[in-house]
């Protein structure tokens, strides 16, 4: 069993997916705080037709081309959402649902058509993009993920303070000269990159949960943005690695689903056992300390005279 995990292939896969978990947790923190989780989901579903079209153009399963196609339709889907919201009375949630449905539907039809048409030898295997599959991962795939991760990591670390002020207080950020619109676009681009990088191993359907769940779990452990981003990255990594390990040990379970379930497990543990979790709150209130908001020493001295 241990030997199975230490095989070269498995190590490659573990390296790739742990990087993926790390950046998805990191970007997920920003996405959740910016309330872009649904946008991420729409983007992810809108990648499917792009994958198929790229496959039709290239003619075989060349991953970088497929992902490029995926990124194109994904971002195009978001552009459609934005156009729908601006030029009609449709609100953003309906626009997101609409784009998600239309693009995903088109993607499913296309992929089935390709599948039916394909001769025995060149089965596209596009189905694996739905729920994710890591067993076929090769070094080149990991390099791709590593490149994306490095880019995402550098951007977020360098612009952390800019993201923080834009996410927390957009009006103040704009008034002090930060280009909040551009920061939003940049964030959407980062989400898009992570989604696309995660498509082969996590899949179209569940990649968003890998963005959302670690971030939501991390929020239970801290009151600081930096710490939340860090914890979310670590939780994302743990979820991905455990997903891969389980799928390696038990044949043929889709990794994306396993990763999501592992992330959910971490969320439940956080929600129950963290300092801000249910049990700690119960314990505090049963000892008569109230919740934090009430127990805080809020009496503030009068402002100093002539301060």
């Amino acid at each position: 069993m241990i030997q199975e995990l230490l095989r070269y292939n498995t190590l490659i896969i573990l390296a790739g997916t742990s990087l993926l978990g790390l950046v998805s947790g990191l970007v997920g923190t920003l996405a959740v705080l910016r309330r872009r989780a649904l946008a991420g989901d729409a983007l992810a579903h809108a990648t499917l037709p792009g994958l198929c079209i790229a496959f039709l153009v290239v003619g075989h399963r060349h991953l970088p081309s497929l992902l490029l196609g995926a990124a194109c339709t994904g971002l195009f889907g978001l552009a459609c959402v934005s156009i729908l919201c601006r030029s009609s009375r449709i609100k953003d949630d309906a626009a997101l649902a609409l784009v998600l449905g239309v693009f995903f539907g088109a993607g499913i039809v296309l992929s089935r058509w390709i599948q039916n048409r394909a001769t025995e030898g060149s089965k596209a295997g596009l189905d694996s993009f739905l729920l994710g599959k890591t067993s076929g991962m090769i070094l080149a795939d990991v390099e791709l993920i590593a490149a994306v991760s490095a880019f995402v990591l550098i951007v977020i670390v360098a612009l952390f303070k800019e993201f923080q002020v834009t996410l927390f207080d957009t009006a103040f950020a704009r008034a002090t000269g930060w280009p909040t619109g551009t920061m939003d676009l940049l964030l959407m681009l980062l989400i898009g990159l992570v989604v696309v990088a995660g498509l082969p191993s996590v899949g179209v359907v569940l990649i968003t949960s890998l963005l959302v769940i670690p971030a939501a779990a991390a929020r239970f452990w801290t009151d600081r943005f930096e710490t939340m981003a860090l914890i979310s990255s670590i939780l994302g990594m743990i979820a991905c690695v455990s997903g891969v390990v389980i799928s390696t040990l038990i044949e043929d379970l889709p990794t994306g689903a396993l990763m999501t379930l592992c992330a959910t497990g971490l969320f439940v543990v956080s929600a129950l056992f963290s300092p801000r979790g249910v049990i700690a709150r119960r314990y505090r209130s049963s000892r008569g300390e109230g919740n934090e908001t009430n127990s805080a020493p809020f009496h503030i001295a009068e402002l100093p005279e002539g301060a």
């Binding site: 705080l33 207080d169 957009t170 103040f172 002090t176 801290t222 009151d223 600081r224 943005f225 710490t227």
Partner: peptide, 19 residues
């Protein structure tokens, strides 16, 4: 205009004034 549930502490908010 802001989300008061945002994970940020008082000092970090004031620091934004120096950004």
């Amino acid at each position: 205009s802001v989300d008061w549930d945002f994970p940020i502490q008082v000092l970090d908010v004031v620091l934004m004034g120096t950004y």
